[in-house]
Every structure is written in structure tokens, then in C-alpha cells.
Design a protein around this nucleic acid. Sequence first.
DNA 1: GGATACACGG
DNA 2: CCGTGTATCC
Lengths: 260, 260
Amino acid sequence: MKIATWNVNSIRIRLQHVVDWLIQNPVDVLCMQEIKVVDENFPRSPFEELGYHLHLAGQKSYNGVAILSLKPLQDVSTGFSATLTEVAPEWNEQKRVITGVIDGIRIINLYVPNGAAVGSEKYEYKLRWLNVLREYLQILLASTPNICMCGDFNIALEAKDIHEKVNTENHIMASEPERQALRDILALGFSDAFRKFTTEGGHYSWWDYRAASFRRNLGWRIDHHYLTPNLYERAKSCTIDITPRKLTQPSDHAPVIVEF
Amino acid sequence: MKIATWNVNSIRIRLQHVVDWLIQNPVDVLCMQEIKVVDENFPRSPFEELGYHLHLAGQKSYNGVAILSLKPLQDVSTGFSATLTEVAPEWNEQKRVITGVIDGIRIINLYVPNGAAVGSEKYEYKLRWLNVLREYLQILLASTPNICMCGDFNIALEAKDIHEKVNTENHIMASEPERQALRDILALGFSDAFRKFTTEGGHYSWWDYRAASFRRNLGWRIDHHYLTPNLYERAKSCTIDITPRKLTQPSDHAPVIVEF
DNA sequence: GGATACACGG
DNA sequence: CCGTGTATCC
């Protein structure tokens, strides 16, 4: 089974890229982030024609996540509230979470807040969001211990996940509080699928549109598959496919694929 | 000598269409309207490489007129104030007028206000603008009696200049006050070059982008060459070239060409 | 730098 | 329907 995660930065703009990629890479599950469209306007048919079932948590303009899967998912829910019944409903307004179960594996597709700048209001929101996520995961783990949690985490955990032309100190996506919040989540029992197979740095999943970052390979590895122990053992590969990032009008992110 | 008028609806968007058209139709003079760009950002070189001299009266976002000519123009001025020294300077804010002389012929390139809806503030502005234009022309006629006044007049003078799917009564571009204001201008001694050669209706220079107007030929003839008697006598042809309107991402107007 | 929405002019 | 700007987000 292959599961991919890809921040597509607008599914309507990227439709052809994503369809073409799926034809070349017929993964079992595709988790998308930043679809930037309400469910009614999601371009369903091109994906349904490829045999995918669609599970959407869309929103106008911003955010929005979707899971496409060849087999339909079971036990699908969106947002934190479906699981974390005591959480404030505001945590569901931004569409950043969708989950479902396939072959006994719970897939959790996340679009972690970007956080703007360290110390900003959005940064505080990101840290609080990660804390809510941790509580959410604790509950899910109790019922479905096999979890593939993937998506755009907007956090690079190690120096080798970031190109060297940036001052990482107190940089958004690299600050210690963000990293610690993510480590606290991983401590629930998740491991980075990519690092099972690749230890060296210089592998990235996101390159800023500005300053010709991709051409100069000034990237960040911020899109991840985090696996619970059983799945981590079973993982056979985890790769980043940078080919779609080379197309015209690309997403700023590349897809990351894990295989079991 | 061939003189063309074309409302290009943004020269930056239409650059390739206009360049291609000039290569196929190497007119001596091209009068453009709605260039929608300040002079500093006008794409000069593609036209200069074709041998054209550029005379610009551009503005940000809206309006803007330009004359391109193989021979440089003499006595170029923009706006009403250069000639009508007593007019309020507000009449020069919207860039709708540019003029110059070539081979003893004064070319006046106009973008007449659209007028929005009959009775609106913009409509009153259009009528007052036409009145100022008349005073302006009176002065120019005294020094240069041979005038080719062309451009987007946003007025169709006769029923046969308008398709029949529209109720012309009190319609913008066809209302009696607009037509009378234009007739008052033509009474200074101008004649419609197009009507020297073609008397039947059904020839249009503008089709609304909406409602598939071009496909259904629901057009208006609102782009004109008005000539003083000597030039009118010398006119050999006046045609509308609808081919660029068939391209993808076309201007809503077609070029009109007069030949002496 | 590239995506979104919205307002305005036509 | 098709341009142009502005603002917001990343």
C-alpha cells in the first residue's frame, strides 16, 4: 500500500498536475492540503474517473484538506471535535484535519498552521493547535493503534532538514517551541518514515516560490509521514518526488510517498 | 496611408495580439485605446522593433491612449488642456485624448467615456466630456483643417449600427442625448469614413464579452474614423478586421482601418 | 512569488 | 466575461 501526502496549494489551479501525477503514481491514498475550495466546488470527477473515493474537508480561500483513496475509508471524521468532544468548536473552523480508516490503518491528514512569524498571534495559535492535536491523537490511539499521520506540518525538526542559506534561530518552522510541540506529539509513539531510509540532509519537500528557491535547492523538509511502531516496522520506502515541482505553475510543495 | 484604431483593453495582456496584427497589417498609424498602463510600463520595444514611434498618454488601471506611427508625429499633445487652455485641469486627469500631425494630417485619438447607464453620474460626465471635445475640436480645426479623428466613441449613431437583440431606447451608447452630442461634433465638418463605403447594417466593431455576443454576432459599431471633407474625399477604404476578435483572450473590440 | 477574494470599470 | 487594483496568507 502506498500513501502520499501533498500540499497542492489550490486543487483547482493544480488539478491537471495532480491528475497527471496520480496516473503516473497510482497510490492507494493521497492526502492533500491547502485545497482552498469548499466541498461543493471540489473537482470530483477527474479523480472519480481514476477510481478514487473522495473525503473532503474544504473551506473557501484558505486551508482545506482531502483524502482520496482507491478503497473507501471507514470511520471518516473532520476537525478535532468529532473525537475531542470537549474542545472549543472554534478549533474546527479552519479545515486542517481529516481522518479515516483503511485496512485497519488510521490515516490522519493534517495541515498544521504556518504560524507567520515567531511571537506573532498566528504563532501562538500554531502552538496551541499542536497542543490540541496531541490531545486528539491520544484519544484516537486508544481505539486505532496503527496510525499514519501525514501532511504539511510546517515544522522542520532538524538542521539537516533545512537548507543552509537561512538563519534557523527563531525562524518560523524551526523555532524550539514549535519543534518541542511536535516532539511532544511524536512521543505518543510516532516515528518519521522518511528517516527510516534516509539519514543524510539535503532532502526537502517545500521550496518558497520566491528567490528561485527551487532552482537553488533552498528547501525545507516540512511534509511528513509519522507512523506508529507497527507501521514503522512495515514501512518499505519513503520518498519525496520532486518532479511535479519542476513543472510550470507548480505547487510550492512536492509529494511525499510512504509504502508498506 | 493606412490609419487603424483599436481599443485593445490592456496593452500588456494584448501585446502579442497587437504585435502579430501589425506584422500582418503594417499600418502607418495605429491608435489604441484602453492601454491601461502608465507610460513607464508600456511595452515599447516590440513596437519599436517593428519601426514604430510611440506617443503615449497612459494611466494606471483605466483608460490610456497611444498613437504608434512609422513616421514620428509632429505637434503631439495629450488631453484637452494643451489646446483648450481655459478648460478646468480635471478634464486631463483621465487619459482619453492624444493628438499629433503626420503629413499635414492631424490624427486625434479618442477614448470617449462609456457612461455606465443613462442618467448616471458617469453618463452626465460623458455628455459634458463630449461638449468639451467639441470646443477642443473647434480650436484644432482652425490650425489644422485636415483631421482624422478616430477611436472608441462608445456611441452608435444609427439603429443599423447595433444588433437587433437589444432594446436601444435609452440604452447607453445609443441614447438620444449621446447621439445628439456626437452629431453636434460631427457638424463641425466630420464624416464617417466607414459609411462612405458601406451602407448596410450588421457591421460591428465591439461585442460584449458576456453572453457569447461575438459568436452570435450581437455587436455594436462604436469605433469610428471621422474625417474632415478633404480627407473624406481622399478615403479609399474603411474596414473592420474581425479576425483578432476570434483569437483566444481577445480584446472585446476589433480594429478599424481607413486608407487614403 | 503565487494563490485567494473582493471591488470597480467596462 | 474580462480586465485592473487592493488585501491577505503562506
